[in-house]
Design a protein around this nucleic acid. Structure first.
Length: 130
DNA sequence: TTTCTTACA
DNA sequence: TGTAAGAA
């Protein structure tokens, strides 16, 4: 049931971004949809790339960082040497993401603390008022 | 109607 | 990124 191709508007609507944004990503070389005349025709693979780009953006990655991750997916490199460096890249990226995850959890705990203190403050105010 | 390019805010 | 203009 997965569609084979998409128009720029279909993808823009699906991901909640403008057509302009998708064309911009192409300008940056993040996607290369095939053309039929001037019309851009996006493949399922293009759709996935855009999805990953947007996901990266959501967690604060720059377009460049997203490209790095996306490039890890396609086996463009095949000799043993490149595969080794690819593995290292993957591991390195994993470390950074885990670090981010750690930092996010820590910040979340901090927020819990602040909220808790606020709740306590409100409670005592209500008590002294009544 | 939809998409394209280009250019400017 | 949004938006506008003119073309296809």
């Amino acid at each position: 049931m997965t569609k084979a191709t998409y128009s720029i508007s279909e993808l823009a609507n699906e991901f909640g971004v403008s057509n302009r944004t998708i064309r911009y990503y192409e300008e940056k070389g993040l996607v290369q949809p095939r053309r039929v005349g001037q019309k851009r025709i996006y493949s399922a693979a293009d759709r996935v790339r855009i999805k990953l780009i947007l996901r990266g953006k959501r967690i604060g990655m720059t377009l460049k960082e997203s490209v790095e991750i996306i490039d890890l997916y396609d086996p463009e490199h095949n000799n043993e040497e490149q595969l080794h460096s690819l593995i290292n890249s993957v591991r390195d990226k994993r470390r950074r993401l885990l670090q981010q995850q750690q930092d996010i959890n820590d910040m979340l705990r901090g927020l819990d603390e602040v909220e808790s203190l606020c709740q306590q403050a409100l409670s005592s105010q209500h008590l002294s008022r009544s």
